[in-house]
Design a protein around this nucleic acid. Structure first.
Lengths: 340, 340
DNA sequence: TGTAGTGCCTGAACCGGTTCAGTGACCCCT
DNA sequence: AGGGGTCACTGAACCGGTTCAGGCACTACA
């Protein structure tokens, strides 16, 4: 099948390229009759405008990018990403924008290089950025590159922002978890967080500490890295020697560490939830299938991804920054925190 | 920052656009000195060629596409996809090709429409196709569209193929599983497969039946759909009423159904592996974390994805079809089939 | 000394769309 | 009858690269 072009359509209809273009794009300047003839012919020939030609003349790629920079070890075990991707994709598909995906290791330089490349090549119109860091260099970089972006999980504290993002009130989530444990009688708990370089972990740690303080509870912090082994090691080092005031509950920063913690409890011969209760700050199938099933904060990554993508589309469309707070997460109570 | 163009570079250097282009692309026609000057300037200005302009003049998108058409329910629970994606991405990144991702529901029409669109818009240079079906309409469609593709999990039986693909010898995998169960003394087993519309499930079912026959074993087939509930329901309907010759082992087509089966065993009060052994035809973290941990065939989806992507790159580069057999999968023996 | 060959470089066409400025035709108003 | 406005449409420029045909200078060879 010889590829049709807009010039071909114009020739067949005996009109000019310009008219065809106007007709196809719903722009004024053509009669209703002509427009119909053009659209009908395009459909009949199963013709679509060349995306690269369109991208060139509109100076718009029609795609947005996303760099998944994660531990290769985690990337296939974290259902979180896949769910988020699915949400992002549904939003983008609705806006007729393509998703360009790049996976790099935990190397910030590679993520940076990818952004520079994409900006230079004008390959994407904007990017979705995740896991906001302390003194995150990426917003400044992207600004310098003139690349619109949405920060997923932006710092919610600031006022009207100079960028778009979704915000999560981690303090509220923290309170939900801490109160749940307090209600069950726990007074000394551990909090196994993700790396403190992530801003949201900082907020969570602060939230947990604050809420615990108002309830007269004690929190033992532990910095993990979201991997199975970290959860395991945390539990071993925190609970091997109970001491006089033992820890009776552990909050994990994600589902993988929760699973690791559960394995460790089994090894140590500690019964869950009778001796130690568990809460995961991320829900997933893992939490549901574990035995005991693990109480988890359901954060709905699919919806979050969808919202982030919508913000990016809006930013590209209108150029206005928006921040949108995510709805409060819900705690799904399961056996790991069943009433003692 | 005003965007530089090739014309800008040419002006700065006092040479023609053509020379710049030749220099940048490593083509003959420029002196070594000029080439260096061009490359140095490009680096200094952090300049990259516009991907859309390049795509237009080369008539090559520089991207390949992949439609993930799966049950939305499964898409975020199946670690298989994520691992495969990671493998695909590493191969594509090496070949400097972008990955365009689209997720659609289990609706074949949408997948078809996506291919037609991509072909019409020349948005991708080729696609990766998964889950080969009985009388799969996609190869013919893609051929008609002139869209190069690689079939992941192509029928391995045929001779030199008219397309590229990775092939898996499911009969060998089936034998690995069946022999393992036979060695443990099982003589009557169930095989909970995925939908028979998938060609690979057909091959697996045949392989299991054939190998079982040579070992004097009996196989009870059950058609599932890869979802948690299907595994559960299969076990319930197969094992609730043992009868005179009870089933002592169940083989599941993927990890999710295995987990469902495990839940069902627990409900029925059947001990695993003492009363019923379990094998999963897909390994994942779920199998490792389950209790008992589930024996599983490790198929290395990351590597398979990488190979499939490499085949596609080769096809785009040279235009020659290749089929590449995947290495035989290895059975990871865990507690769910521990010696009785 | 003429000429064929080679190396370096250039102008212009081309890829397939979008968009601007301009041209008639037609209608309305005074 | 003449001036102004709207409508449908067109030619040509443009987006930013790639590539072809050809020009010029210089060397090599007969």
């Amino acid at each position: 099948m010889a590829k049709e072009t807009i010039a071909g359509l114009a020739r067949r209809l005996g009109i000019s390229k310009a008219s065809v273009s106007y007709a196809l794009n719903g722009q004024p300047g053509v009669s209703e009759l002509t427009r119909r003839r053009v659209l009908d012919l395009a459909e009949e020939l199963e013709w679509y405008p060349s995306s690269s030609a369109r991208a060139l003349s509109r100076s718009r790629a029609g795609a947005v990018g996303m760099v998944l920079s994660a531990d290769p070890l985690l990337i296939d075990t974290e259902p979180y990403y896949m769910a988020m991707l699915a949400g992002i994709e549904t939003a983008l598909a609705a806006g007729d924008v393509a998703l360009m995906l790049r996976m790099v290791g935990k190397d910030p330089a590679q993520e940076r290089a990818t952004y520079e490349r994409w900006a230079g090549e004008r390959k994407v119109d904007g990017v979705l950025v995740f896991d906001h860091l302390h003194d995150d260099p990426r917003p400044a970089l992207l600004d310098r590159l003139g690349m619109p972006f949405v920060l997923h999980g932006a710092p919610g504290s600031a006022g009207p922002a100079a960028f778009s993002g979704t915000t999560t009130d981690h303090a509220v989530d923290a309170a939900t978890i801490v109160r749940h444990l307090h209600d069950l009688g726990h007074r000394r708990v551990a909090h196994v967080s993700g790396p403190r370089t992530f801003l949201h972990e900082e907020e969570r740690i602060g939230g947990v500490a604050a809420c615990a303080a108002t309830h007269g509870m004690e929190v033992v912090p532990f910095e993990g890295n979201y991997a199975l082994g970290a959860g395991h090691d945390a539990v071993v080092s925190l609970l091997r020697d109970p001491g006089d005031r033992p820890i009776t509950a552990v909050v994990f920063g994600n589902d993988l560490m929760s699973m690791g913690g559960l394995l460790a409890l089994r090894e140590l011969g500690l019964r869950c939830p009778e001796e130690v209760a568990l809460v995961s700050w991320d829900d997933s199938l893992h939490c549901q299938l574990a035995s005991p099933a693990v109480t988890a904060l359901s954060r709905n990554p699919g919806m979050q991804g969808r919202v982030a993508a919508e913000l990016l589309l809006a930013l590209l469309e209108t150029g206005t920054f928006q921040t949108r707070p995510m709805p409060v997460s819900e705690l799904v109570v399961r056996a790991s925190t069943a009433a003692g």
